[in-house]
Design a protein around this nucleic acid. Structure first.
Lengths: 195, 195
DNA sequence: CTCAATGGAAACTGATCTGTTTCCACCACC
DNA sequence: GGTGGTGGAAACAGATCAGTTTCCATTGAG
C-alpha cells in the first residue's frame, strides 16, 4: 500500500538501510514505521528481530558484492585490475560521505556474538569477497593465492575501518596498499604485456 | 566501599570493560551495578553516559597503546621488529578468545556519529598508533613513512576486523602482511646487518 | 452480495532505557 | 556530641524496547 513492493520486500529494504545507518539496536517500531508495515505483519514474516537482521543482511549481501566486484562485462580486465576495481569502488563509496563501514563487519562488531544468525551471514558474505580475490589470484598465477586473498580482504576491511574512524575520504590508500602487495607477489600491472 | 578504588576509577574500569564486551548500548544501571556505584554518583562524576563512554575510552587508551607497543626496555629491537611486535601482540590477544575487535574501531562503528565525544577519542588514539609506526619508519629510513604508517594501521585494523568476523585466531596473517609491506618498502629484516 | 484472508493501527505486556530525585547511612572534622 | 559532605539504595519520570493481541478496513473469490 505504501509502495508497490510486498511487505516482506519493504521490510528487508528498510531493515537493510536502518540497521546500517543507525545500528542493529534501532527499535522494531521505527523499522516497521519506515517500511510502512505493521508489527503484526513483521512478526508473521519473521520469527524475531534477530532473524530480520540476518535476512536483511543476506538480502543485501549479493547487491553489495556486485557493487564491489566487476561484472561479467568487464572480462577484458586483467585479474589485477579486477581486484583493484574493488578498492576503487570502495574509495568511491567512502567519498560519498554516507559510508559507515562495511555492513558485514559493522554488523558483526555490533552483535558481538559470532553465533548470532546475523554474524553467520556476515561471515559467509565476507568469505565470498575473499573467494573472489582468490579466483582472480589463481587466474593471475599467484604463488600463494589463499594467503594473498586473505591479505587483500584485510586491507579492504582496514580501509573500511579507517574510513569510519577518520570520517574522511580514503584518497586511494586502499588501492595503493593492495597494489603494493600485488606487486610484491609478482603480480604486476604489466603482466599481460610480458606474456 | 566495594573496592578500594575511588568511585570514579571503579566506574571507568567497569565502563571500559562492559562497553567493550557488551557494546555502548549497555544500560547505565548495569554499569553502575558492576562498578558498585550509584547512578546518583555517576551523574555527579560524569555529565552523561556519552561523556562516560569517551572518558572510559580515554582512560584505557594509554594502557591499550602500551599493551601493543614495545616499551622503552626494548630499545635493542630494530624499528622493523618494533613494528612487527604490535602485530604479534595483536595476534596473541586474538588467540585468548576474548578479543572483540579493536576497542577504538568498535566504539566508532557503534557510535556511528564521528562527532560523538567517544568517536573523537577513538580517532585520537588510533592516530597515536599511526604516529608510532611513523616514528619507527623514520628511524628505519623509509622513503614514504607517512603513507606506510597509514598502511600498517590499516593492516592492523583489517586483522582486527577479520578476527571479529571469523571468531578464530589470526595465525600470524597480520604480521605476515605487515612484513611483506615492509619488505616491499625496502625495510628488510637484515637491514641492521647491511649498515 | 457474502465470505474469508490480508494487513495496517494501535493498545497492551513487562522489561529496560537515560536521567533525576529523595532519603538515609556513614565518616571525618570540630 | 554535633555537623557537613560523600555516596549508596531505591523510587520516580517519560520514553523506548521486543513481542502479542485486538479490532477493523480493504480486497479478491465465489
Amino acid at each position: 500500500m505504501t509502495t508497490s513492493a510486498t511487505p516482506r520486500e519493504r521490510l528487508l529494504d528498510a531493515a537493510g538501510e536502518l540497521f546500517y545507518r543507525d545500528g542493529v539496536n534501532i527499535g522494531v517500531d521505527a523499522l516497521c514505521k519506515a517500511a510502512g508495515v505493521s508489527k503484526k505483519s513483521m512478526y508473521q514474516l519473521f520469527r524475531s528481530k534477530d532473524e530480520l537482521i540476518a535476512e536483511s543482511l543476506a538480502s543485501r549481501g549479493p547487491a553489495y558484492q556486485t557493487l564491489l566486484q566487476p561484472g561479467v562485462e568487464d572480462n577484458d580486465l586483467s585479474p589485477r585490475e579486477r581486484i583493484l576495481v574493488v578498492f576503487e569502488r570502495q574509495d568511491a563509496m567512502v567519498a560519498t560521505g554516507n559510508y559507515l563501514g562495511c555492513p558485514l563487519v559493522s554488523t558483526a562488531v555490533e552483535l558481538k556474538n559470532p553465533e548470532h544468525p546475523g554474524s553467520v551471514v556476515a561471515r559467509h558474505f565476507k568469505q565470498q569477497l575473499t573467494d573472489f580475490f582468490h579466483r582472480e589470484l589463481v587466474k593471475a598465477g599467484a604463488e600463494d593465492p589463499s594467503t594473498l586473498a586473505v591479505q587483500l580482504t584485510m586491507i579492504f576491511d582496514g580501509a573500511s575501518a579507517r574510513a569510519v574512524v577518520r570520517a574522511q575520504p580514503l584518497g586511494g590508500i586502499g588501492a595503493a596498499t593492495a597494489s603494493a602487495l600485488l606487486d610484491a607477489a609478482g603480480i604486476h600491472a604489466a603482466e599481460l604485456a610480458l606474456h
